[in-house]
Amino acid sequence: MAGTVIGEGLSFEGELTCDDEVVVHGTLRGTLSTEGEVSVGAHGVVEANIDAASVSVAGQVTGNVNAQQRVDLQAGGRLIGDVKSTRLTIADGASFKGNVDMGV
């Protein structure tokens, strides 16, 4: 049981709360909060505010991202929303629109 996985083809709608890893290959609408890592696969679609320890985006995310540790926006990833995290990486080829707050 590697935490929570939203497989491709499935869509979760609502408020998802975990204390473990969350992997999104499908669709999530609502809110997502976890004490673990969130990774959004290349085909994953998240329309939610994300609150997690770390977030890795290879798919699409629309919503504000708040990470305790880090946010990684990978190539091909698309993030629309504000990011609040002490570390942020944006890979070449990723698209991003929003504000960044690194707690400076």
């Binding site: 049981m1 935490g3 408020e15 709360t17 976890t34």
Partner: peptide, 22 residues
């Protein structure tokens, strides 16, 4: 990748619906 089964972990809570193929 549709074969990947989805799961909702031990201490996870979803307030909402799950729909789709899989």
């Amino acid at each position: 990748m549709a074969s990947t089964t989805s799961s909702i972990g031990h201490n996870s809570t979803l307030r909402g619906n799950v729909r789709g193929e899989g």
